[in-house]
Structure formats: structure tokens, C-alpha cells
């Protein structure tokens, strides 16, 4: 097929202002179309490249859709048992304090089966970065209810919507851990629009820079879509996320430089 509207005067190597980073392995990502996991993978790799720390970074991948993160991120990585990434990252960082260490975890991994590991690593004030992808569901296994599932939200195990009377309240684990003294930086971001992507990338940079000072856990929650689990198109799911997830999980900084952010965060729609 002939490609229309090609600007041959512009499409030259010296004019490239953006291309996929080589730190992402050159193979298709295993994620569903429009899934936020892919964006966060890319931002993380771009940040390592910009800081030129790819050879000094060790990542820990979870169990969940991003179980194969080590196949996509071209850096040293280990796969943890379900929920145990913060325990593994603790060992890695203590053995190699000069390395940059991060965990990459979903909400089922971090806030359900791994709750104990999450809370204790945060409370101990380990010096690594946690990237937490909250899509309010167990994406990988077919969209079951997670601790983070919203009240009234449908999932394959709450087909009539989450009833808090019988199924309990959603767990705001990010707010919870922000109260722990070992936690230095906590923020909640998103990656579905260009401005949100830019903010998330800044947050990732800040979190990794913090490791140089050994000040404790840096925790970045990314509220993301699971369009397959939510049974929507990617674009619909992003809209649904703005209307339903953000009011419950408001975006913005929660703790900066070891201090809780006082102001009440307003939900962003931009």
C-alpha cells in the first residue's frame, strides 16, 4: 500500500525527535492493545537511558500480565514469586547498594498476595523504587476482583458489581504505606494522555534519583486501564478510568521529601 502524506523533506534521520528506546527489546509486547503496561515499560526504560544507569539497574518483575517484563526490558532483571518482589528487591539492594533497584508490580501482586512484603519493605525503609500498576483487577487471570476493585465495579468474580457489605472495601494501599516512616516519596499518576505521560516520567526520574541518597522507599502508583478485564475498548476504558477510578484514586503527590502533602488533591481530567 502506498503511504499517503509522507513528508520526504522531513522524514530524515537527522530530524528524528522521538523513537522507541533500544532499552526495550525489539519484539512485540504481550499486552492487549491500549494497555497502560506498555507505556510504563517504555517510560521506565527511557528514564534509565537518560540517566545512563541501564548497566547499574536491576529490576524485579511480578506475577501478573507484566510477568514477562524481563523479556521486554533490556536490563538485568529477576522474576519474583507472586507478591514477593519487595522481598527480593530488598535482598538485591542490600547486596548491591550501588545499584538502582526497582520492582514493577500489579495491584493483585502488590496489594493482595504481596501485602505483607509491600508493607514491611516500606516500613523498613528499603532504598528501592516500587512501580505499582493499579488497574483495579487481576488482568492476567481473567479479570477477577482485586482488593483495589471499586465499589460497584463488575469483574468476573463480582458480576453484579463489588458489594462492600460482603466483599469488603477497596484497599488504598498507596495512602496506607505513605504513612510509614520508611517511605520518602509517594505519588499517584496515570499514562493515558500526553500530559499524564510526561508527569509520570518525571515521577519515575525523581524516584530513581532518590536512590542515590538512600532515603527510603519511592513509591509510584500508576492508575491504568485493563480494557480487556473491564470489557471495554481502550479509548472507552480510558474515559471510564477518568470518570470512575480517578475520583476514588485521586492523582497527584501524596508524600514528598518524607512529608505528607497536606492539600486535598483534586482529580485531574486533563
Amino acid at each position: 500500500m502506498e503511504e499517503p502524506f509522507v513528508k520526504t523533506e522531513i522524514r530524515k534521520d537527522e530530524n528524528i525527535v522521538y523513537k522507541r528506546t533500544d532499552l526495550l527489546v525489539d519484539r512485540p509486547l504481550s499486552y492487549c492493545p491500549g494497555c497502560g503496561h506498555g507505556v510504563v515499560h517504555r517510560l521506565l526504560m527511557e528514564t534509565l537511558e537518560e540517566m545512563d544507569i541501564q548497566d547499574k539497574t536491576i529490576g524485579v518483575s511480578p506475577v501478573g500480565c507484566s510477568v514477562l517484563a524481563y523479556d521486554f526490558m533490556n536490563i538485568d532483571m529477576l522474576g519474583a514469586a507472586h507478591g514477593r518482589a519487595p522481598a527480593l528487591a530488598t535482598a538485591i539492594k542490600r547486596l548491591w547498594p550501588d545499584r538502582f533497584v526497582f520492582t514493577y508490580q500489579g495491584d493483585g501482586d502488590l496489594a493482595a498476595i504481596g501485602t505483607a512484603e509491600t508493607i514491611h519493605a516500606c516500613n523498613r525503609g528499603e532504598n528501592f523504587t516500587i512501580i505499582f500498576i493499579n488497574n483495579g483487577i487481576y488482568g492476567m487471570t481473567g479479570g477477577q476482583m482485586a482488593p483495589t476493585t471499586l465499589p460497584g465495579m463488575r469483574s468476573s468474580t463480582s458480576p453484579y458489581g463489588r458489594d462492600v457489605q460482603t466483599m469488603g472495601h477497596p484497599l488504598k494501599i498507596t495512602e496506607l504505606i505513605s504513612n510509614l516512616p520508611g517511605v520518602h516519596y509517594v505519588t499517584r499518576q496515570a499514562v493515558h494522555t500526553p500530559s499524564h505521560v510526561r508527569k509520570t516520567k518525571k515521577a519515575i526520574r525523581k524516584a530513581l534519583e532518590q536512590q542515590k541518597e538512600s532515603k527510603g522507599i519511592a513509591f509510584i502508583e500508576v492508575v491504568s486501564n485493563c480494557n480487556s478485564g473491564w470489557k471495554m475498548t481502550p479509548v472507552q476504558s480510558n474515559k471510564w478510568m477518568e470518570e470512575n477510578m480517578f475520583p476514588f484514586y485521586p492523582l497527584g503527590d501524596i508524600k514528598v521529601d518524607g512529608k505528607l502533602v497536606e492539600k486535598k488533591e483534586v482529580t485531574e481530567k486533563a
Partner: peptide
């Protein structure tokens, strides 16, 4: 914003 990073920009 492309989840699959498939766009190069000039």
C-alpha cells in the same frame, strides 16, 4: 502515549 511505542516522530 502509544503503548507499543510504534511511532517515530520527525
Amino acid at each position: 502515549v502509544c503503548p507499543d511505542g510504534v511511532i517515530t516522530v520527525y
